[in-house]
Design a binder for these strands. Structure first.
Lengths: 221, 221
DNA sequence: CGCCTGATTGATCATTCTCAACGAGAGTGG
DNA sequence: CCACTCTCGTTGAGAATGATCAATCAGGCG
């Protein structure tokens, strides 16, 4: 898959990124097309990213191609923080995605002088760690149905409980996030559909209406 | 299981804890007996801990008792950092364990004034995150034999490749760390023994001699 | 139309879990 | 010292969850 990157603008940043980097930092807007790599595992970590539109998956691979997706990032989310010099995983755009990019060196320069930014940075890393801890519990100890229920509840919460949520990721992505195969994910979703816990809209099976969040929560352990 | 805690001493700290807390911070030494809880999930986070002797497991539970161990902590390791007010998991002494304890408020007071300490703290959290990312890959995508091989290699590395390593944790602990049952762990270890990759010493089956680290590394994906 | 991707569903397989039996040590109390 | 019990670990047989292999269908796009 080829990468197409366009610089869209260069302007002062605002929002959470500004809190980390300080008010003087600048950032650029870039676009990544569906499936393109934003950065690769082992690459030098030059930037941090905030999504303004689209969705991103971050993952690790085993030598034979088995994939574990760490997390999905949605608009507003930041990713790409690294304490070391290199990225510890790969980031890819799941769909057409617009990100704001800030140079990592700006971040590091701004940090020591700014106690609040430093605390914010610890907060971001801790948030990731917390998610990872919960996800280890899911991966290690939940059944396939519990995993899929937990995934739907997570996405529902992060998309602010819309009437119909449009999942940007494929069944394979969901499977690689939950440590399952795509068939098992599909079967679990069919069970939830047959139980009238959710309903699909449109043609792609990615538009999900949550009919019974309570019942779904009970299926998650 | 009853908790027995003895205050052993109160003195200036040194080592990595000092770098985080600043040179003026004090700490106490406590002892926890085998199986006793150091802190529980949801409890107020008052202290941070460094192990001077023994071993600790940190874990989360599901409502029905299924357990996922996040990590094992060995002498020298620090744990109990929380960004929030409460602990996100439970910590228990696996064997008789001695820890140095420092009040969390000292840490927070010392931090803003000390840029180096702040960076160290980010480093600790990042280290935990890195371990969690690798562990998610293991839990989601590795086979039982790969998991056990990875576990042995991790412990071998952290115990500085001793001739015979003495594992402080039971088969059940290993299983709950790897997302397996204790029987599956036992079977995997028997396979490695039969393949002359390792050998057990003593009577308890917890003293492991690594006979072929290269072969073991090839079994890990 | 032909070809591709993505999703569902079915049939079968296999890895791992569950249930069970057994043995070795450690600790206890007589 | 010897039962007795408890924990811990191993091993076996069978069950089951989830994986694999395969067929089908629908939509998008050249």
């Amino acid at each position: 898959m080829l990468i197409r990157v366009n610089t869209a603008s260069r302007r002062p940043i605002d929002g959470p990124m500004a809190a980390v980097a300080g008010p003087r930092a600048l950032c650029s807007e870039f676009k990544y097309r569906r499936g393109s790599e934003i950065f690769g595992e082992g690459e030098h970590a030059e930037y941090i990213y905030q999504i303004s539109y689209g969705a991103v998956r971050t993952y690790k691979l085993l030598a034979d191609g088995r994939r574990q997706i760490n997390s999905f990032h949605l608009p507003g989310d930041m990713f790409g923080f690294e304490n070391s010099e290199t990225h510890r995983f790969t980031a890819e755009a799941i769909v057409e995605t617009h990100v704001r990019i800030m140079k990592r060196c700006n971040l590091l320069e701004a940090m020591p002088s700014e106690a609040a930014g430093s605390k914010k940075l610890i907060g971001f890393v801790t948030e990731n760690l917390q998610h990872a801890e919960n996800h280890m519990l899911l991966l290690g100890r939940k059944t396939s149905l519990e995993k899929v229920a937990a995934f739907l509840l997570e996405m529902d919460g992060r998309l602010a409980h819309p009437d119909v949520m449009t999942l940007p990721m494929s069944r394979r992505d969901i499977a690689d996030y939950l440590g399952l195969t795509l068939e098992t994910v599909s079967r679990a979703l069919s069970i939830l559909r047959d139980d009238k816990i959710l309903r699909f809209h449109g043609t792609t099976q990615r538009e999900v209406e949550m009919l019974d969040r309570e019942k779904l929560a009970k299926l998650d352990a």
